[in-house]
Amino acid sequence: MTPLQIVFILVALVTIVSALFVVSLRKIFHAALWLIVTLMGVAIIFALLEASFFAAVQILVYIGAIAIILIFAIMLTRNIMSDEEVQINRSWGIVLFLVLVFTVIFISQLSSSDVINTILIPLEFQGQESIIAFGEGLLDPAGYALPFELASLLLLGALVGGVYIAMDKKGGENK
């Protein structure tokens, strides 16, 4: 076994276990912390796949921004930390059964398909070339220019909406 494989197995285990903690812990603040561990694990897996741009963006956006905002929301919300809430509802048995059935079907069907048995090919790009290729793909009309611009329009709309909601409409004290 190469060191890379050992690292991959360790990281994958940590990612899965912490993802389980995210949905099963009673203290929601701790769940948010485990979510950060999960996202970090995904970032490391990106890095192992030589997708360094996605690894960095995963850390920058998901941990540096989204997880921190999430923690803020939890810290600023009252009574969200109570331990008395029941974590499961009445129909957990049937859900578990259905999930098991679907899992068996999926695994038995997908294990023979080409999607799972993809062989990884090392990238031919050196240094900056992969990022430059990525950027050109995003802005190329034949590539992903339209979805990219639409996503940026969506984000701009969300930004303007956020400012509008936060704005003091009456003029108020601070003009």
Partner: peptide, 10 residues
């Protein structure tokens, strides 16, 4: 690292 600047920010 080819994304060192992003890494610094992250």
């Amino acid at each position: 690292l080819n994304v060192a600047l992003l890494f610094i920010l992250g």
